Computed example of a mutant assay.
Amino acid sequence: MLKQRIITALCLIPLVLAGIFWAPTVYFAWGLVPIFAIAAKEWGRLIDKECNVTQWSFTLTVTSLLIIINVMFPADELWFKGQIHPMFLAIISIGVMWWLISTLLVMSFPKSAKVWNTSPMLKSMFGQLTLIPCFVSLIALKSLSSSVDPYFGGALVFIVMLVVWAADTGAYFAGRSLGKHKLMPSVSPAKTLEGLAGGLLTTMLIVAGVMYVSPEQELGLLIVVTLITALASAFGDLSESMFKRVAEIKDSGKILPGHGGILDRIDSLTAAFPVFTLIYIAMWM
């Protein structure tokens, strides 16, 4: 399993980096559509793992919305005089509100499941709120690239990914070596408070790296934003775990050997990107 995970990661990393840094923003936006379409198909299994009609209906709905977004709001026209298009800001804001609600659902699980467990409509809505704001946030950050600094937007996307990867890696090793107190045993029995703390501490390496490259940044603000983003990523992971546990599904899919499905790989990112993007817009734009 570990060998498969490493091989898959080594194959994917160059593609991810190429898309983030070198793909034109419009191509990047369109390239995300099939990735999120696969994630939508996987979320369809969380709605009803036995009904293909439900799964494909949800996939078609999400994919159609993503295509409409790309057609109506071209990625290279989202920013004007430092302001993002109001529709994108609204979607990102709604996404952050959803993650606040999702956090409450996770913290009150399994009682909260009584509200949505038997409702395909609610689970479908939750899936759209999970995927679409993340899609929009990725495009919003990437499109900050300019002729003056063509890699700026890509760098922001990459930093968020680094924060999430650092938090996941730190949590994994700290949890294995020090973990004693369960974080959310009813949602994900393997996760511990020590793992969460280790993950948050590991993200400080990203803060150190950013300060080294860009020392003019305000250290305290950077630490706070990094920790909030990392915490959001942790609850993004827990949220998917909650829905998978109710659906009695171990992995969302099998498309990535050793890793499961697309949704399994981006669950933390689906929360981290909207949260970081909204903070960035509020603080730095």
Rank of each mutant, 00 (worst) to 15 (best):
A29L: 03
G44H: 02
R45C: 06
T61M: 12
P34Q: 08
L65D: 06
W43M: 01
W43C: 02
D76W: 08
E42H: 06
V62S: 02
W30C: 11
K49F: 04
W79L: 10
Q83W: 12
A40I: 09
C51G: 06
W30H: 08
N52Y: 12
I84Q: 08
A29G: 07
L65R: 02
G82E: 10
T63M: 01
D76S: 14
A29W: 08
V53A: 15
A40Q: 04
A29P: 00
N70I: 05
S57Q: 11
G44R: 01
D48N: 15
I35N: 02
E42R: 06
I69F: 15
S64H: 03
D76V: 07
I67N: 01
W30I: 06
L78G: 05
G31V: 09
A40R: 09
L32F: 07
N52H: 13
A40N: 08
I38N: 05
V62R: 01
I68D: 03
P74L: 03
D48R: 08
T63I: 05
A40P: 10
D48G: 07
F80P: 00
T59P: 01
F36Y: 11
L60M: 14
V53C: 11
A37S: 15
W56D: 10
C51Y: 13
L46N: 00
F80E: 13
F58R: 00
T54G: 00
E50H: 15
G82Q: 12
L32N: 02
E50P: 05
